[in-house]
Design a protein around this nucleic acid. Sequence first.
DNA 1: GCCCAGGGCAGGA
DNA 2: TCCTGCCATGGG
Length: 290
Amino acid sequence: MKKVIELPEKFNFKAATTDHGWYMLPPFHSNDDMSALNRVEKLSTGKIVMLHIKQDNAKLIIEIEDKKTLTNKESEEIIRKISWMYRLDEDYSAFYKMCADNKDMQEIVTENRGRLLRSPSIFEDIVKTILTTNTTWSRTISMTTNFVTLLGERYSDDSGLFTFPTPEAVLKKDRDFLNQTVKLGYRSDYIYELALNIVNGVYDLDVLKNPEISTEDVVLKMKKIKGVGPYALSNILMLLGRYDYLPVDSEFKKHVKNKYFSGELPPNAQLHQLYKEWGEYKFLAYWFDR
DNA sequence: GCCCAGGGCAGGA
DNA sequence: TCCTGCCATGGG
């Protein structure tokens, strides 16, 4: 089955897919030439589908592998999720205007960059963000792969591909399993508690997709999640389309130390003042400055 | 064995 | 608000 989504005027599939590292984390997977992004996805009806996403001029083409036909509701859910993943509703014109005035940011405008791939659900994006903290990227990949393989649902009997686990699936195992078998280390408690609070209705995360909610409200909610500190907060806000907080982590410090401070790192307060001329777009300014 | 990795938490000034 | 010790895993 095939579905088509009309794209905004400015859209660069390869950049939108690969400008952020999420495409390397399962259940995302891709061909070597990056012509398509693939993903196993569980729909709210319980049906599990394989999605192949690619661009054809002004359209996004979705090939859906499925044993049975999809209902209209299921098709709509797929379109809604993919539109969210590629931020098709986001307006980059103000950011592009600022880039046009900056000689180092010209190619952001000419190449239609700025979109950073995100997951269909906030739960998945928060889990993945927590799995990037205090570790290396290669460990993030292996922790995510373990998490998806050991707790997700298999696409088909002969497939090595899985869905991203639901919070309910996390709660079916204990913290020891997350710690020692999935090898999440001390992050296992954070992720278990996150899943628990979602299932118990303490956190209702997907309402935060609503751009009408103020960033301050989102910040207050995110700070309540154990395992989410300043760096993770900034990354989650970015994933929600809010770019005013900088991700001040070791990588950020390494970058600005070399580029702006000739090897001598200033105090923390000063680091948070960087890129402030970019206003609501500080995160993107830093991201594409690297 | 030791050190560190795209941090965060609790405790204490 | 800022600083310190500690957290648990695997790779160099």
